[in-house]
Simulated assay, not measured.
Amino acid sequence: MTTFTRRGALGLAGGAAVLPLLGTPALANTKLTVGALRFTSHAASFVAFERGYFADEGLDVEFKFFEAAQPMAVAIASGDADFGVTSITGGLISLAEKGAAKVIAGALMEEKGIDGQMILASNEAHAAGLTSPKALDGKSFAVTQAGSSFHYMGAKIAAAEGVNISYKPLQKVGAIIGALKSGQVDAWTIVPHIGKALVGAKAVSQIGMVADYLPDYQVTTVFTSANNAANERAKTEAFLRAFSKGAADFNAALVDKTLDAAGQEEMVKLIHKYVYEDQPYEKAAKSIINGAMRLNKDSALNMGSVQDQVDWFKSEGLVKDSITTEMLVDPSYVQMM
């Protein structure tokens, strides 16, 4: 059965061969490099690859893995990767302003009733009184880089509580985990597949939830080079169709849990090939299941959240004041929320 989405209709109107009907896909053997982090939140790409959704669209995909968001944005802009899924950062916004990158869809989002990103404290800081975000005044807060999503979340939490915090850039998630566990940094925010594992191991303490400060936060987006968005519509729409199918499968198995136990286990085993792949399945499975957050249906994008993020980066002087969301987002691909 052929399904036409809003994006598909736009592609057909532009004359592109959007949906393969029978036989060989229109984009047979088109090679793509997809940027990703080894997070459960990036599962849509992994599912689309493992279940052949990319291949069905004629896309020959390989993954390029990163340890932070901003380097991925640079790779997309330089052509070292074709598509990426990660948070909005100052680097991504600046690249968009220069005409090098475009956000084309939404991925991970905070949703009421579903466990989301956690606010964590080192055990040392927790024992000294950091038992809630209200006690963050004067404390250090870990970020990968200035202008990262961690920086944005930390600032929003601090503003809501009326406290001052200092940011400690540690470049990589692994380095942050080590610093938090050893008490070299006081606090951090992170997705639940990592946060719950750390708290469960009593390596750190939980002091709050990001959703209490940023409800409906568009945590990650799908983005590509401005050239792909403008000149490779058939390829870009094919990627988004496959990605959206992967997200739907993920939500059904681990968020809505409309699949039976066997279907849920199959999904966890698939994700384990990419997330906590260095751990035994029995150990990794719990963290993967605990880390399941909603991936936007049909890759829709919460433009209100995107606007808030752009406004914050501008207010902090991290990007040019002249930047607009129209520079960042290509609306011809986006299903608005």
Rank of each mutant, 00 (worst) to 15 (best):
S87C: 09
A36F: 07
G84E: 01
I88Q: 12
A43V: 05
G14Y: 08
L10V: 02
G11L: 05
A100I: 09
A96D: 02
A36K: 15
Y53L: 05
E111R: 15
G11I: 04
F54S: 02
M72K: 05
G23K: 07
F49Q: 08
L32F: 08
L108W: 09
V47E: 09
F54L: 10
A36D: 07
L59I: 03
M72N: 15
F49T: 04
R38E: 15
T89C: 04
K31L: 11
S78C: 11
F63C: 11
G84M: 01
A13D: 07
A36M: 12
E67I: 12
A107N: 15
P25F: 03
M72Y: 02
E67Q: 14
V18L: 11
A75I: 09
V103A: 02
K102A: 03
F66K: 12
S45P: 04
I93W: 05
V18G: 01
H42C: 14
T89N: 03
A69N: 15
I104G: 00
V103G: 00
M72H: 08
K31R: 15
F54T: 04
A17E: 13
I88K: 06
A26C: 07
A69S: 15
T89V: 06
E50D: 14
P20L: 05
G52M: 07
A68W: 05
F83P: 00
G14P: 00
A48N: 04
N29K: 15
S45Y: 08
A69C: 13
R7P: 00
G58P: 01
A75K: 06
G79M: 02
L22E: 09
A101K: 02
T89F: 07
D56I: 06
F46N: 08
S45H: 11
G23Y: 06
V61H: 05
V34Y: 03
S87Y: 04
V85K: 08
I104M: 00
E97D: 14
A68Q: 10
I104F: 00
V47T: 10
M109E: 14
L95W: 00
E110C: 10
A101F: 00
P71C: 10
A77L: 09
L10Q: 01
E50N: 09
F83R: 01
V47M: 11
D60Q: 15
E111N: 09
V61R: 10
L32V: 14
M72P: 09
T86H: 10
S87T: 11
P71G: 11
Y53M: 05
L32E: 00
V18K: 04
K64G: 12
K31H: 15
A16C: 03
V85R: 11
A100D: 15
S94T: 13
A28S: 13
A43G: 13
A75Y: 04
G35C: 05
I88D: 05
E67A: 15
K98M: 12
A16K: 07
E110G: 11
K102P: 03
T33F: 01
E57F: 01
L37W: 03
F54E: 02
A16P: 00
T33G: 11
L59V: 02
L92S: 05
V85Y: 06
F39Q: 13
A26I: 09
V34K: 03
G8V: 04
E97S: 11
A101V: 01
D82S: 13
K31N: 06
A75V: 04
G90Q: 08
A17L: 14
A73H: 03
G106A: 01
F39S: 12
H42I: 08
T30F: 06
T89A: 03
A43N: 07
E97H: 13
L27P: 13
A43F: 13
